[in-house]
Design a protein around this nucleic acid. Structure first.
Lengths: 166, 166
DNA sequence: CCGTATCCACAACGATACTG
DNA sequence: CAGTATCGTTGTGGATACGG
């Protein structure tokens, strides 16, 4: 575990191409919108489980460590938001089962969760964290990176924020 | 804006090297720990402002669009958690001012916020979102990627989850 | 197995007013 | 400018019990 530094030695900061701007209406910010969809701890935990391959209601509640009512409410919201689908799932000779699966929209959230997990591994875990990601083809560990379209790896300090016009 | 698909066409899923495992104690999961630090909407919004370069209390409250009491509470927690520092900041001939600055720990959260923003741009914005990231050196747009140590770009479906042993 | 119903506790937040 | 104090509302979530 790395201790929090009281005084930052290096301080990456974004130098903006943004005007001295007054305020960010929350409605226009994609980060705010994203947070409105997955605002709660339980939503994050359920999505984590979905990525781990969990598909049944009971498993979601048990493995995420949340109560059934909360699991039910959150799963419904995630389905309504289009991150999960409820599919009925009948094997021959078996009764029907329900399976919650990630949609493309939900699956696309993976880099964000991976980035959060990586940060937790680095700053909050004593031992680097319990779970690692590996590239199946080559066995190498996988990390989240910021890259520009030209392929350069970038740090926050090398970035400009720009307003998009259309 | 891309509409949520009811039935997922392609479904990236992590195939685990994890045993059929019973449950994830929330205490050991780095994602859960990370969420416990930045659980709330206001914390995310304040961090966004910090990355945008905001440093003064009033600006944080106004630009994040949250009330002063909430801003005060959240800023205090973020300082306690080691993501921000309160530095006193005196220019010659001026009275002292306070400045909240990101620590290294806080700055390291940037990829996670960028990933969330990118997801919001893709799935929740009509027009690709209001803010873009550019590499200052080459002007190319910047995106979050999952890469293995060998340099391969990977998708969630190509990943294995592994338990770390030490 | 897959939830819902009910109740309660507490956290998060906005609004307003006030202080150094 | 940089907060604190207080109040009321809503959201989040655990516990328990119950139904398809």
């Amino acid at each position: 575990m790395t201790e929090a530094k009281e005084a930052a030695p290096a301080m990456p900061r974004l130098t903006g191409a943004l005007e001295p701007r007054a305020s960010w209406p929350a409605t226009g910010c994609s980060l705010a919108r994203a947070i409105d969809v997955v605002s709660t701890r339980s939503a994050f935990l359920l999505l984590r489980e979905a990525f781990y391959g969990t598909s049944r209601f009971d498993d979601f509640a048990t493995r995420a460590g949340i109560s059934e009512p909360v699991a039910a409410a959150r799963l419904r919201e995630l389905v309504e938001a289009g991150l999960l689908t409820r599919a009925e799932y009948r094997e021959p000779g078996q009764r029907a089962r329900l399976a919650y699966r990630l949609t493309e929209k939900g699956a696309d959230l993976f880099p964000a969760l991976a980035a959060l997990m990586e940060w937790g591994d680095r700053w909050l875990a004593e031992d680097g964290g319990p779970i690692g990601l590996r590239h199946r083809d080559c066995g190498e560990p996988v990390a989240v990176e910021l890259r520009c379209a030209a392929g350069h790896r970038t740090s926050p300090g090398e970035l400009d924020l720009v307003h998009r016009r259309r």
